[in-house]
Design a protein around this nucleic acid. Structure first.
Lengths: 350, 350
DNA sequence: TTTTAGCACTTAAGGCGGTTGAGTGCTATT
DNA sequence: AATAGCACTCAACCGCCTTAAGTGCTAAAA
């Protein structure tokens, strides 16, 4: 049945079985698996001593190893590999669970949300991290383009593709275009080529260059009606950019896992931070929240130094630094202060 | 000079000075500050015993406290508050540093990047977390609007405001509009009202309703030239959505700070994950990277289970789960598998 | 009255030795 | 080929002790 050589340990069926049971066990409770345990679990009636021989073979093959001499065995990557490739029996999901998932997906609308909730689903179901690459269709179909003139002959182009994704890009043009020129250019493109694959457009353009007509103008009242609707709902949601969160792990007073976890969850949640920044927006100059003052438990051991920044003398936003209460305020305060001023004036020059 | 009452400890100048020195010291090395240390640091020639009395007063006032009976003192939030409000001597930044900052800001172009690099600057200079609220100008000036018809009478509106921000919103209209109707509506709005403050537009609309002319059509060749430029650079950057990263802290084998830190930095960096997902995109069906197989050090103790998902029979993206090598593969694999299928078909139905 | 010296007391932290329990490898036997 | 027996290893835990830092209190000195 199985060929065996005395010089090189054999990976016969029995050994494979033990490997399987060992890995399953290790996955279950995370402890190195010893011979006695394995003997009981395996369902084959063998003494621990025998198991030890087998495990020793497995170790020689690099499929398991021990953290130290008198510990049980732990699977190595190669061990997992074999397990996954040929030993694994997959439990299909319950029909009920599948149903739930289907309903979950059915209830979402636009692609962005779908992707987001797929990621959340993965994370929730597995209690691990879920990740979803944003769809990148092989054939990107062009939907809409828009141009916004910037200073010089730079133009902001906004390209909308079939998947509802919006791509912003700043391009440098050879000559300078006026705003109305750009608008008309966009109209032309949009009317002629929406729905065509991106790669094809260049070819089509040349060929179809002079075929266009325009039959607009009289639907303006419709435009009005829609616009009314849009400007009604202009909710400016607010969002922030965070950097260097992991720096916080350097501080002893924050770096127990619970604390860090709370902090990061708070960052991910966003709403609390947004409230906090909102509060900081009203005051001008540098503002400091120390410990509980922020009002959020996760920041109990943190201070937040903020400053609002102004564009053309209007408060436009807030920026700041989050760190342990024990921070070098004398240094952080001027940094936040000057950054706010520089950011403000940098944004003004646009 | 200073009024004192025997019943309530006094916050005289000397006590304030000690508080200041204590906090400065504590900020420097994070250890509870004892009477002897404080005596040396304070620059006033007093014995530790005297200092102890003062510290005891400060404690009674709630400005400091000891972690345990025989430890030194640590500032409380109120202590920091007083320190920050009236004891702090701020070090202005070196002119050199300011120069560097200015140059840093000068080199960035669009607002989004400015905000991002401001956040990074804050984080780098302070070695803590930087946060910047995205500018929310008091008067949002309207730049550009665009409509994309979706199914039913839902319309995707894309509103661009003066700060270069793009706001997507799906609205429900009363009646159904065709694509060309929508395009014309957008054109009308864009031509007439770009540069006006958002709030004012509704009023202006009614009043200016019938004044519009159109003088387009002959700039089409320009449109062509620009478009050429845009479609040239269509670089579809690729991005992913991550969820439940903090779940990873639940696993003992990952949850030492160094490890978690590396992981989170990798998530934030994005490029590595993107490469990995890219690799997973080519294979179809579920793919598994175990430990070092991923090729990235930060994932040495992690496995990644991925599956590509298809839209209309074309591979559109990848999704997956990241967890410890010791994961319940038999459960995770079908979850990833089915999620990929469901996401694919959910996206197709659009 | 303020400051200081002295003293007894508290506490975290670290080192040391012993014990326990799980597990191993080897050898001789069945 | 499988097993039993045995000596050995090692992490983890426990209790014990010591050390270092610091405290509060009281009584004496300035």
């Amino acid at each position: 049945m199985t060929t065996k050589k005395s010089s090189q340990p054999a990976v016969n069926e029995r050994a494979q079985h033990f490997l399987k049971v060992l890995i399953e066990r290790y996955i279950r409770d995370g402890q190195p698996v010893g011979s006695r345990t394995l003997a009981k679990d395996a369902g084959i009636d063998l003494s621990p001593a025998t198991i030890r021989n087998v495990m020793s073979d497995l170790e020689e093959l690099g499929l398991v190893n021990s953290p130290h001499t008198s510990a049980g065995r732990v699977p190595t990557s190669s061990g997992y590999r074999i397990f996954v490739d040929s030993l694994l029996t997959i439990k299909p999901l319950q029909q009920v669970e599948i149903g739930q998932l289907e309903r979950e997906f059915a209830s979402r609308a636009d692609p962005r949300n779908l992707v987001k909730s797929a990621s959340n689903l993965l994370s929730n179901m597995t209690h691990m991290a879920g990740v979803v690459l944003i769809p990148r269709p092989k054939q990107v179909v062009y939907r809409q383009i828009e141009f916004i003139p910037l200073s010089g002959n730079r133009v902001l182009t906004i390209l909308v593709t079939s998947d509802g994704e919006v791509h912003n890009k700043i391009i440098e043009t050879q000559s300078t275009y006026s705003q109305s020129q750009l608008i008309q250019a966009a109209n032309f493109l949009n009317e002629s080529y929406s729905g065509k694959p991106l790669e094809a457009i260049r070819g089509l353009l040349v060929e179809e260059m002079e075929k266009t007509k325009q039959q607009m103008n009289d639907l303006m009242s419709d435009a009005l009606s829609i616009a009314n609707n849009v400007f009604e709902i202009d909710g400016n949601e607010g969002d922030y950019i965070l950097a260097g969160q992991t720096n916080l792990m350097d501080f002893d007073e924050l770096s127990n896992l619970d604390n860090i976890r709370n902090l990061f969850d708070t960052f991910a949640e966003k709403s609390q931070i947004l409230h906090l920044l909102d509060r900081a927006m009203t005051a001008d100059g540098v503002q400091i929240f120390i410990g509980e003052e922020s009002g959020y438990d996760s920041f109990d051991n943190c201070s937040i130094v903020t400053s609002s920044y102004e564009i053309d003398n209007d408060v436009a936003g807030v920026l700041g630094v989050i760190g342990p209460t024990r921070m070098a305020y004398d240094r952080v305060i001027p940094i936040v202060d000057i950054t706010a001023k520089l950011l403000g004036s940098a944004l003004k020059h646009q």
